[in-house]
Write a protein that binds this DNA or RNA. Structure first.
Lengths: 247, 247
DNA sequence: CTAGTTCGTGTATGTCGTACACAAGTTAGA
DNA sequence: TCTAACTTGTGTACGACATACACGAACTAG
């Protein structure tokens, strides 16, 4: 379980099925990677990352804790497998490059929203799972018809995925903070800022809160905020593309 | 240590010095929040977040583990204090709005690079520390001279901070994965992708790697990638500002 | 049949965050 | 000045966690 003849990280090998399953003896495995990953995702979907411990996972499967380690080198590796499985298949896209990229970003956002725990997984290494690579491929393909250089296309897709991830995370934190959690009243963020933002030291912030920008946005806020950033970024890419056409 | 008469989260109260230090008896405190936070930051700076445990922190201070809890409600609260202290004072900026925002983003990036563990701190709640609020204020001020609405200015600053954080994190992960860690040879990411990206299923990705886009970038890569995204975003903001002037 | 391999399991270790109770120090009011 | 109230640092303890290790049982290739 620790040697990687191909030189690839263990989790990556498993993701691509390169794991040499040369069974040379022993009892038939009663478990399978698929079952383990599915159960792990289930635990994380309800209860978040904290609910996903090796012992709880084993219990959910009806086995002992250590049995899971026959299939997975470590919890970190398991998380990598869960991530690729959860991100799932990238969507088919059509339209011009901008419509495609927009659809790409929105679809990615939906995945994150459906499985918020993905945002809490400490990223250790680059995405090289099959599904993640398909997402990357689709993003690149959306830009194939443009005049951008190869490197610029890659950077654009990277920029978008960075944006989606960061944006969903920020909004999720914001909403979490404003949501009652243990019978406690939610933190009214506008009130906190109002209390703390002295108009002398923080004139702009104070003007913002007194202008009501931080109020009433609880529902529409996430979508609007996402759209705003996405539009700015795509506008920037558009400007780059145009400059390469005319220049 | 658990009651918050002002209704604010405990950590926020401490950040703003609202902690009613009505000492009504008891020995003089031998420790101080400042010393604790400084020691915690020191531990995290060398060794990352895993090196910052309550026991190690207490040991570094020369006290017992539990003594720290006389000054801090929980480790999470401590982390909030550390974050605000580490982000530090926002820089003075000058130039037009674009130059100011660019300087703002670059300065923020430097902070993250100097203290990479900040990226690993699970965000729980919104930034409302004094320093973080100054950063926000400075960002807003950079846009004060533009025609953007108040909400658009806020969204722009939010977009930028989201971008900087996500970008630095992504690059940090990439570099970490490509860096030898325990005498192990580093993971050659280009090689992994080359090995795994079947040209039939992943034509765009394969073209990218065979085009050498993933090679040789180890040093210049982070800066170039950051600049690319930053420029796109600012171009997008610029387009918005211009549209509001002419339209 | 047997030697080698792999399975699931039980036990154990070390680390972590933190609840709790206590003795000693300190202050405000009687 | 005495005392009641409170705070300080400390010791002990608990439960959760990831995971190393060794063992017996199951299986399969020779």
């Amino acid at each position: 379980m620790t040697d990687t003849p191909s030189g690839l990280p263990p989790a990556i090998e498993q993701l691509w099925g390169l794991r040499g399953s040369g069974r040379r003896g022993g009892p038939k495995p009663a478990l399978s990677l698929e079952r383990i990953v599915a159960a792990a995702i289930g635990l994380a979907d309800e209860g978040g990352l904290p609910a996903l411990s090796m012992s709880r996972l084993a219990e959910a499967l009806g086995f002992t804790t250590m049995s899971v380690y026959r299939y997975v080198a470590s919890k970190d590796d398991l998380l990598v497998l869960c991530l690729d499985a959860t991100i799932g298949a990238a969507p088919e896209l059509d339209g011009d490059w901008r419509e495609q990229l927009e659809g790409w970003a929105r679809a990615l956002r939906v995945r994150y929203q459906q499985h918020p725990w993905m945002l809490d997984v400490p990223i250790s290494g680059l995405p090289a799972g099959p599904n993640q690579l398909v997402w990357f491929e689709r993003g690149l393909r959306a830009l194939a018809s443009t005049t951008l250089e190869a490197g610029q296309r890659a950077s654009t897709v990277l920029l978008l995925s960075t944006y989606v991830r960061g944006q969903v995370q920020m909004v999720a934190d914001l909403v979490r903070a404003a949501t009652p959690v243990d019978g406690q009243p939610p933190v009214d963020w506008a009130a906190v800022v109002r209390r703390v933002a002295d108009p002398d030291r923080f004139p702009e912030v104070a003007a913002l809160v007194s202008g009501g920008v931080f109020d009433d946005e609880l529902d529409a806020f996430p979508d609007e905020e996402f759209d705003f950033g996405l539009r700015r970024i795509l506008d920037g890419v558009d400007a780059l593309a145009r400059s390469r056409v005319s220049g």
